[in-house]
């Protein structure tokens, strides 16, 4: 067989090469997409739900802290909240100098 005929035959074989996926490929793709979407949505919901509980616990802790500060110091100032109300930075220095 000549080279040209061989080339033509090869081209014909390749053009007629029509492998197909097994039946139901389209359904498999759609089902997988639905499954991935559902899983992602579930993870998202779980995350939001977990975050909500963490956030609520944080808010409750802050409120508890503020109430404690109010009942201890009787006021709501920045110094009271951060615990500096009765603290004098000069005291340790003066004590050191007196010594």
């Amino acid at each position: 067989m000549s080279q040209n005929s061989k080339n033509e035959k090869l081209t014909e074989i390749l053009l007629n090469h029509n492998p197909e996926f097994n039946d139901g490929f389209s359904e498999r793709v759609i089902n997988k997409i639905k499954l991935v979407s559902t899983t992602n949505k579930k993870i998202e919901n779980d995350f939001i739900s977990a975050f909500r509980w963490v956030a609520l616990s944080g808010v409750a802790a802050i409120l508890l802290l503020l109430i404690t500060v109010y009942f201890t110091d009787g006021m709501f100032t920045t110094d009271a909240v951060v615990g500096l109300l009765n603290y004098s930075p000069d005291e340790p220095l003066l004590a050191e100098l007196n010594y």
Partner: peptide, 19 residues
């Protein structure tokens, strides 16, 4: 199907890549 099966040679693996 033509691209993946011809490239991979295995129908099942090609199906996964197609998906």
């Amino acid at each position: 199907a033509k691209i993946t099966i011809s490239m991979i040679g295995n129908k099942d693996d090609a199906d996964d890549i197609g998906q």
